[in-house]
Amino acid sequence: MIKLASLSKHFGKTVVLDGIDLTIEEGEIVVIIGPSGTGKSTLLRCVNFLEQPTTGTITVGDLTVDVNRASRADILSMRRRTAFVFQNYALFSNKTALQNIAERLLVVDRWPKEKAYQRAREILDQIGLADKADAYPASMSGGQQQRVGIGRAMATGADVILFDEPTSSLDPEWVEEVLGLMKQLASERQTMMVVTHEMSFARDVADRVIFIDGGRIVEQGPPSEIFHNPRDPRTKDFLKKILATNPV
């Protein structure tokens, strides 16, 4: 279970997140939508302290941290309970696909080499890239890189995987294979928080869609409700605009 309470983030005088309260059950798939610059990515980055939140508490599993009192050890264990998939993939460029996936198991979990690589190979199989084990990121397509990025997140065994616009940097031809892998994870009930503009993914896969604007949760509910029966005018306005260019 993930619980965010009164989570806020200020950059100087700019309030990017304004008291987010959110509880996510184990196995739940939550998709976060909203206009650009409304704090969606910042919200994800605050959960694993890639950004230091200004106030609030974060709970992941049995660990609760008051962000102002978080010690280095707290931040480290929070990061080890969460995994992150980046918009620009951010694979380790000096490591092969296999090594990218195994890195967490080798370095953080201190598994023996053989066991770590065996597990990494299983994951490569699951993401359909067994033949790319020894390929470096520079020689892979965007879609393949992002699938390895997801594989790296899977290897962490984290309580939740945070997806920060995972298909936004991809050429259109690679989007489907990445969304397909995410659907596969969703069907295995991997807890996920996904920031995306892919409305069809939100409609088909999400258990809950959250609309954020101005650093606050404006509206949330099952996709059928949000897409067909939005209540808040801001939600309606946003959906009208995005569905015009990006039909479901």
Partner: peptide, 18 residues
């Protein structure tokens, strides 16, 4: 070295020295 490399390493729970 690109900042995203550091962020990716932090995101899988590495320490600064790792």
């Amino acid at each position: 070295v690109d900042r995203s490399q550091t962020e990716a390493a932090l995101s899988i729970g590495m320490t600064n020295s790792q």
